[in-house]
Nucleic acid binder design. Structure first.
Length: 476
RNA sequence: GGUGGGUUGGCCGAGAGGCGAGGCAACGGACUGCAAAUCCGUCCACACGGGUUCGAAUCCCGUACCCACCUCCA
């Protein structure tokens, strides 16, 4: 069976049939870089990173575009509050976001276009829409340009709503809208806004509306028709509905499949700066390792709501350490690190069929993780029986690689802050102590032996006795 | 008002008519000087009330509660 994905537009799981065999074009809505990324933001990135890795493992060549929204109302408001240029805030937050992605081993996209770099493409699209009667310049002289929702009968099809049932927006002042449901393609510059936040256009200086950027950038980098468009559930409406409407109204078929990830909530509420309950990635990573946070996210299905708690996170981390422990025992460190040595297999052909089936079924990572644990248990059993487990270890690594969770991936090294020289220095010291302990044990002086072990534990170093002698590792 | 999703064991979290996911925690056993790790075993849950069926966590009807979206949002 091949890959099946849940398509929001169809409200059903559909077989994935790419427009072009062997290639997959994916566009994912990134973030508005207005504040520090929280775990909910990163969940979305991790979910779509798993999609990408699975497409790659399935043999597709993947064009993966994830945008950055670096100009919008909030960025302007916040930067004004902080009394600094909007682009300074946007750029700083953009770099923080990249750090968070890197920490969680989210592969860099093929390209990460920023809205401000694509104003000409947006203007062109807007002009086409105006020309074809799907958009109009506001008659109040504001310089705004709106999409005419009523001119597009299919409006509402993505989110399954009928225009007549929609509540009209109450917040934004209607300005020059013909219908309250019309949305802005272009926002004329207001006197209160910095001159740097405006670009020339046929309707006067202004800046892009929120939705137009994705249509323009997806079109530029993936073409008028592409395979998969992803983002958080909240984007389904209005953002994605509007993207689709404005693209199709301009004659572009746009996305074939729409994927939406669910929320991570905390204390029953979605994370939001305004609620003061957002869990900033950097803070969470002071409590657990990044690989553990990623495992926690991957353990839940991307369409399931996750109620975040540190308790659940730490339980997941404990489970993940079982997997790591197996690999450490199955693959002696030397064989992994040794230069030029072939890495233990990460060949997709080695993936257990049950794992493949789980992933093909709308990225069923929970079931896939179940398979992972099955193989680990079997591997541990064989290990206890003194049998060869290299094949199982290879399977485990191949599965972890697909999930972006291979502990041996160098991507984790930098984030973990490990330092080889430091490790080797500690190793010398610990070995000295372990020799003393071995001598004490040989003399049956267990009090002395345990004292050494306790001292090491106090220093955060755990000792494990094995048939081949004791080993140590930093406690996590 | 409209649209969509949810309620599973002590906890997390899958599944979508029969073959009891999995993890964490707990308990018993093996191994160990003692631990740790690991292995073996125990722990048979699906909001509530009806119904369909030989058989329902899964389908249908109803009820309760929770959440998201309806033009700021991952």
């Amino acid at each position: 069976m091949s890959l099946r994905l849940h398509d929001t537009a169809a409200r059903a799981v559909r077989e994935f049939v790419p427009l072009e065999p062997g290639r997959a074009g994916v566009y994912v809505c990134g973030l508005t870089v207005q504040s520090q990324p929280h775990v909910g933001h990163v969940r979305s990135a991790v979910n779509f990173d798993v999609l990408r890795r699975w497409l790659l493992a399935s043999g597709y060549q993947v064009d993966f575009i994830r945008n950055i929204t670096d100009i919008d109302d909030k960025i302007l408001l916040k930067s004004a509050d902080q009394d600094r240029p909007w682009y300074n805030l946007a750029y700083e937050m953009s770099r923080e976001l990249t750090r968070a992605y890197d920490a969680l081993n989210v592969l860099p996209p093929t390209y990460e276009p920023a809205a401000t770099g694509h104003v000409p493409e947006m203007l062109q699209l807007i002009e086409e829409l105006v020309r074809d009667g799907h958009a109009y310049a506001a008659e109040d002289g504001s310089g705004d340009v709106y999409f005419d929702v009523l001119s597009w009968p299919a409006y509402g099809e993505l989110s399954g709503q009928r225009v007549d049932d929609m509540e009209a927006a109450e917040d934004a002042d209607p300005r020059g809208k013909r219908d309250p449901r019309d949305f802005a393609l272009w926002k004329g510059r207001k006197d209160s806004e910095p001159a740097t936040a405006s670009w020339p256009s046929p309707w006067g200086p202004g800046r892009p509306g929120w939705h137009i950027e994705c249509s323009a950038m997806a079109g530029k980098y993936l073409g008028p028709a592409f395979d998969i468009h992803g983002g958080g559930v909240d984007l389904r409406f209005p953002h994605h509905e509007n993207e689709q409407a404005q693209s199709r109204a301009a004659g572009r078929p746009f996305a074939s499949y729409w994927l939406h990830n669910a929320w991570i909530t905390t204390a029953g509420e979605k994370m939001s700066k305004s609620l003061g309950n957002s869990l900033v990635v950097g803070e969470v990573l002071q409590r657990v390792r990044a690989i553990e946070l990623r495992f926690y996210m991957v353990s839940a299905h991307y369409r399931s709501h996750v109620e975040f708690s540190f308790e659940a996170l730490e339980e997941a981390a404990a489970g993940f350490r079982r997997v790591e422990g197996f690999l450490e025992r199955a693959l002696p460190v030397d064989s992994v690190v040794e230069e030029g040595a072939p890495r233990p297999s990460r060949n997709p052909g080695e993936l257990p069929p049950a794992f493949v089936e789980a992933m093909d079924d709308d990225l069923g990572t929970p079931a896939a993780v179940g398979v992972l644990f099955d193989v680990v248990r079997e591997g541990n059993r064989l290990l206890a029986a003194g049998e060869d487990v290299s094949a199982l270890a290879g399977q485990v690594r191949a599965m972890l690689d697909v999930l972006g969770l291979d502990p041996a991936d160098p991507a984790w090294g930098a984030a973990a802050g490990s330092d080889e020289r430091l490790t080797s220095a500690v190793d010398v010291l610990v070995r000295g102590l372990l020799e003393q302990r071995a001598a004490a044990r040989a003399a049956k002086d267990f009090a002395a032996a345990d004292a050494i072990r306790d001292t090491l534990r106090t220093a955060g170093i755990a000792i494990t006795d094995t048939p081949d002698g004791p080993t140590w590792e930093l406690e996590q």
